[in-house]
Write a protein that binds this DNA or RNA. Structure first.
Lengths: 342, 342
DNA sequence: CTGAAAGCGCTTACAG
DNA sequence: CTGAAAGCGCTTACAG
């Protein structure tokens, strides 16, 4: 009859009583602090096991001001997030980056530029820090979090002049290489299907392509923007062909966009790469599943997530002299969509 | 100089002082409780805005014993989770199911049958409840959580006799239909590539197929197990053909397994459906991307996640008379892989 | 090496 | 309608 009728969770107090020590001592054992006799430690360990004691996190973090969890914030509607290989990759990277400590991951979704319930939650002391992905326009979220004293790392360069650290792929260099490659294989009417205008990823890839065009003495005038979808890519390609039927090269700001472009090119009777050479971006699973396989700019999405998480955790550990931001290398991978067989 | 040098978060105490009321009153306003004069309410609202006050969640949940967050536990290694359309679907469903309240989702991964850090966390009062997916074998997690008083809903029937509520697709009926369909189109040497033996989903789909075979007077002896991967499916199909080269029908316990089986059948020169008819399970994105398109048992993975979440939240709201478990319907979708064109 | 006591920031009866 | 006070379950100086 020693069992209480209620299945109330045992507290540190009860552990102390069972072990015959003070609360302080129990706390020291739990937190693995020095200065506890072997005898006391054993008694406490035994009591914990007997009572199946688990520390109450709320009480703990009320005093330590630590929650041992970090948030991954994806500024998109939930349904757009899942199934997109980009987010899957980032999530995998974040997940891998956390493995060391026994921190937990809180996943939050929703357009943070138009709804501030996410910001409120984050400022409520619920998490120790946040990795933020897919910011749109001049989203005030990073600044707001920084002002609230919450450590943040952004995946993908944020727009505006907020000084929050970020991790990004070197989109500019990759796109420059893509443009140069199209020039090198002899293309002269080269277009680009750029990404969203309100995201740095769209802007930077466009800038790199422009630079490649300019240095080759070509006019960077064939530009159409698209969202990251096959449908968008298909429509953009159609518009480009309307504007100039003689296009012989296209750089798409994402493989998924390139997939749509390929569809339109096939519909309009253009051979790839003979008539039009196509370069994508990401080297995602899509790049090798198209016919022909896509020449593309490789970036490691998973590494993006892993680096951001590493940066965040390092900051939480109190490390100083951390790089304000990190740029991961990109690399051109040449495949059949730009390769004319002899 | 009214600003403090430290950017310490304002507390309820300070809000009370600024608003000229007691802490109780501020608390009432924050929690939208009745019995506050309009005047007091306004003063508090103003003070909250001025101080940019956000309630401290730890303090709040220490007393209310509520965290306003629920966990989605996936008992798999992180890298296996992302990119698998099944988990993406469940996650989408859970996410959709939570939209109502402003609860947060904590995503946890790791084999809970061999590592109890997840269980410890969940018992630490960090979340109000949990949706658990992809349980293997006789994982003690559900029982442990139930014992700790944490509301749990499992996606996919758990093995063993734990009385936790679960949501599952009607795997048995779907598989029975698959077997009957193969019989109806005249197949006689029908094999199955079953799922993992240590998961109910594997067992139930095998049981359904067996029943279909038996009722047709066929011997249910051509069985090989596989994990949920294309590679596994390919190997299993090869083994089946070794055991009986005259196989003319196959039911694969998942589309991804069927994809592997199709590859092996092509390699061995078997035409689908002429020589071997193939039925998959799930009606995932894969089913319509193969050649030929797959006849398959449709289940709504997203609905699985949504229902489980609904059940959990209803329980948290104190609703009674909730169904102990829910079985969602499955349906056979006939496509080219079992359809012989005249 | 150990314990008594204060305090983290809230909510909740209770009394007015 | 309002406020003073107790208490949630921990950690952390502080004193011994």
């Amino acid at each position: 009859m020693t069992e209480s009728d209620e299945r109330a969770a045992p507290t540190l107090e009860e552990v102390a009583r069972v072990a015959g020590v003070s609360r302080s001592t129990v706390s020291r054992v739990i937190n693995d602090m020095p200065g506890v006799s072997k005898r006391a430690k054993e008694a406490v360990t035994e009591a914990i096991a007997a009572l199946r004691y688990v520390p109450n996190q709320a009480a703990r973090s009320l005093v330590t001001r630590r929650t041992n969890s970090i948030a991954l914030v994806v500024s998109e509607q939930g349904d757009r997030v899942f199934g997109d290989p980009f987010f899957a990759g980032v999530l995998r990277g974040v997940s891998a980056g956390m493995s060391a400590g026994h921190r937990q991951l809180v996943l939050m979704m929703g357009r943070t530029d138009v709804d501030d319930s996410v910001a409120n939650y984050l400022c409520g002391g619920h998490v120790d820090g946040a990795v933020v992905v897919s910011l749109h326009g001049h989203d005030p979220l990073p600044k707001r979090l920084a002002d609230a004293g919450l450590p943040v790392v952004v995946v993908g360069r944020p727009l505006g002049d907020t000084a929050v650290p970020y991790v990004d792929s070197d989109n500019m260099s990759g796109s420059l290489q893509a443009a140069r490659h199209l020039v090198e294989i002899g293309r002269r009417r080269i277009a680009t299907i750029a990404g969203p205008e309100d995201m740095a990823v769209g802007i930077d890839r466009l800038t790199g392509w422009r630079r490649g065009m300019t240095e080759a003495g070509l006019k960077p005038d064939l530009v159409v923007h698209s969202d990251f979808s096959g449908k968008g890519g298909a429509a953009a390609m159609a518009e480009l062909l309307d504007r100039d039927p003689d296009i012989d090269g296209v750089f798409a700001a994402a493989d998924i966009i390139a997939v749509g472009a390929l569809r339109t090119l096939a519909d309009k009777g253009r051979r790839v790469p003979e008539d039009v050479a196509v370069v994508g971006h990401d080297d995602s699973i899509l790049a090798t599943s198209t016919t022909p396989a896509l020449t593309t700019v490789r970036q490691s999405v998973e590494e993006l997530g892993r680096s951001a998480t590493w940066r965040l955790l390092a900051q939480l550990e109190g490390e100083t002299h951390l790089p304000p931001s990190v740029l991961l290398p990109t690399e051109l991978v040449v495949r059949a969509s730009t390769l004319i067989r002899p």
